[in-house]
Nucleic acid binder design. Sequence first.
DNA 1: AAGTCACGCAACCGCTTTGAT
DNA 2: AATCAAAGCGGTTGCGTGACT
Length: 142
Amino acid sequence: MGRSPCCHKEGLNKGAWTADEDKLLSDYIKSRGGGKWGKVPKETGIKRCWKSCRLRWLNYLRPDIKRGNITHDEEDLIIRLHKLLGNRWSLIAGRLPGRTDNEIKNYWNTILAKRQQNNEKSSIARVVDEACRNPDMGYQHQ
DNA sequence: AAGTCACGCAACCGCTTTGAT
DNA sequence: AATCAAAGCGGTTGCGTGACT
């Protein structure tokens, strides 16, 4: 049910985005706004499926995106939110202005890998432990 | 200096959910 | 109320880069 047919069309570009594609997408979203992703490839001429366009915008082109260097506070919040919400990356990202679900997911997977390697009580483990004991963890419902 | 390995990030794939008809 | 298409989400993969031997 409901599999998006656009992603099965042949002749679509794959892999890394070019500067031209970025500009087309960025200009389009700025002038028309997001939401109707199905129209984006047709109206911009970008040879990508709508999913790729959406992902590119959300994870890379959005003007309010912060990139790199997740702060200690942000890391702390991610860990606490993950404890509460599980792998609901989009929800977690919603609590972290300027961060994307993909970025947080990648970051978490990196942390997990490190934690598995260390397998010892790290600062993260301590934070998680602390989070368990303090339910009012300073995040806000919207 | 060259080759190999490991890590991190960007992008893709497929399933689920939501909205329109 | 049922069906279908569009959109959203999370897991996984592939590529590029840097560190190490």
